[in-house]
Amino acid sequence: MTDKKQDEFYIGWVGKTPPTFAALTKRFVLVLLPVIILLGVLLAVSQKKFGTGNFEFGTLTEVRGIYFDKPVPNLRVVTGFGLEGNNSFVTIPLIGYGKFGADGAISDIEKAKHAVLNGKWITLKGTLLYNDGKALMQVDIGDNPITNIADVTPHPMTVDSEQLGSITVKGEIIDPKCYFGVMKPGEGKPHEDCAIRCILGGMPPMLHVVDGSGRINYYFIVGHDGGKINNSIKNYIAGPVAITGKAIQYGDWVVLYTDGPQSITAISKSALWQPKGSIMACAAGGTPLKTPTCSVR
């Protein structure tokens, strides 16, 4: 009454699959698996381009310069000696191990060496991170970071600063460690939790600003007196914001002195777009001090 094919019946535990069941299953699997791999390829190539940041994980570098703890912990490294003490230098902001700022490591060093580092000429050993012509250094107490503290500073250097006035800038608040190379993406929604954790851990918050031509600028964000506002800006991290504050350029970095969260408004993604050449051009890319082209809108 029934033909043999119709009467085939599959029982998993028997361990023998009837031919028509086996044939269909095999054909299906042979098509399905390559299709899934192809979808994987499609997903892989469609990922947004990763940043060019670099974290020299596992490589320690010694850098000599003058340590300042304000506006954020940093090391000023002289790159050329000019006339009248008008030296050129790069500023290397310091950050800590894991999701922490450098403050802990610096205070540990100060305790161990019975010294105050601010304004001292020191040699620091740490892991470099760099992107967009900017460099930062991770200071980890486990790396024995301090190799020398000079008794005298041979070229006393005050912090040159240039008042850029009160400005409003639009961008995204990032944690510089991840952004400059530890994580990719080190910005935006997927990275938000981590940026929050880093900034709550004392990493100096930074505003990342891009204009229509892809020109990038960065602003360290601090309170009006230069103090930390890390804990009060949590809800603004990693999303588009506009920040108003008093901008001061210290050599190759700009610092925005704000009134904390009152100075920050969340804006829409579309409002973030800014026309070509609309942002301050001077400080990006490690351009030397006092570039005359600075313009702020």
Binding site: I37, G40, L43, A44, V45, Q47, F50, M183
Partner: peptide, 27 residues
């Protein structure tokens, strides 16, 4: 294993600035 290897390799070629951690998370 094939899928993960292909995803990570394609990511590395299409996006040389990738980090392995992200490729692992996404694959």
């Amino acid at each position: 294993v094939t899928y993960l290897a292909v995803f990570i390799t394609v990511t590395a070629f299409a996006n040389p600035d990738y980090t392995f951690e992200t490729a692992l998370i996404r694959s």
